[in-house]
């Protein structure tokens, strides 16, 4: 799919229609790109629908597209699919917001205190390398089969990329800008608020974009390991019932949540960072 997009994007003759198509322009694609993307989707769905039955693959291994659709309708009425989706979405958003807030706060605090940064950096590195999702069973032992473990795993996976990005930006602030502020007698806090904080925003948003995709992983693992609600729970439930279509659909909904979170962050980024020249 990616190859198809690059192929047409490289041709200059697609540049003009790209500007005209409003919906397509929104995502930076020309109508020709869109047509190709749709064609790929149609081919993939057709293959998904007809190839497994033709090869005699059972619906318990690979349910077809139409079987998944039918199961989707059943999940909505029978299993309260939207309730579970909302639960997962709520946990992901809450975990993302809390994890980002803590990550950014720690990043700025460490950036302001080189001594604390030097003292704590080996521990931060160790924690960053430790697979955060492996903490999920621990959290269940501590907090039981509630939404809390999912929330905590989400916070934990979101926390580090944001901390690291913010800290990095604090360490690479233009020294001449800081000197300029010092020549103007600005206090340490004013330098932070007027120079360092705004300088760090591009890096902060890079961290937030990474965090928004990781949040879905965190919440899924938390719900997979324990609990009785959320899409992660539906995956384990579907697995227990050998309902492969249910697992497929839950994965699909998780992807939708991830895309939505990412899109919101990306949209916010273009609004906040409007002062950066864009090509």
């Amino acid at each position: 799919m990616t190859m198809a997009i690059d192929d047409t994007a490289a041709r200059p003759d697609t540049a003009a229609p790209r500007r005209r198509a409003s919906l397509a322009a929104l995502i930076g694609l020309g109508p020709r790109d869109l047509a190709l993307i749709l064609a790929v989707a149609l081919v993939a769905i057709a293959a998904w629908e007809f190839v497994p039955p033709a090869l005699g693959v059972s619906r318990y291994i690979i349910p077809t597209f139409s079987q998944c659709l039918a199961e989707f309708g059943a999940m909505v009425t029978r299993d309260n699919l939207f309730g579970h989706t909302l639960h997962t979405l709520g946990t992901a958003v809450a975990g993302f917001l809390l994890g980002s807030a803590f990550g950014a706060a720690c990043g700025y605090a460490l950036g302001l205190s080189p001594l604390a940064e030097r003292t704590l950096s080996p521990y931060i590195l160790a924690l960053q390398i430790a697979p955060k999702v492996a903490f999920a069973p621990l959290f269940i032992m501590w907090f039981g089969y509630t939404f809390v473990p999912g929330l905590l795993v989400t916070m934990l996976v979101v926390f580090f990329p944001i901390l690291v990005n913010v800290l990095q930006s604090m360490k690479t602030v233009d020294r001449d800008l800081v000197n300029l502020a010092r020549v103007y007698h600005m206090s340490r806090f004013a330098i932070f608020r007027k120079i360092e904080l705004p300088s760090s925003l591009p890096n902060l948003f890079a961290g937030l974009r990474i965090g928004s995709t990781l949040a879905v992983i965190g919440v899924t693992v938390g719900e997979l390991v324990g609990g009785n609600s959320g899409l992660g729970f539906l995956i384990t439930y579907g697995e227990g019932q050998a309902n492969t279509a249910m697992v497929f659909n839950a994965i699909g909904m998780l992807t939708v949540i991830g895309i939505a979170l990412y899109a919101v962050v990306a949209r916010l980024e273009t609004r906040v960072l409007h002062w950066i020249r864009r090509s």
Binding site: D174, D176, L177, L180, K194, P198, W275, I276
Partner: peptide, 8 residues
């Protein structure tokens, strides 16, 4: 360098 703050 002009040292203008790009966000202002």
């Amino acid at each position: 360098k002009d040292l203008l703050l790009p966000w202002r």
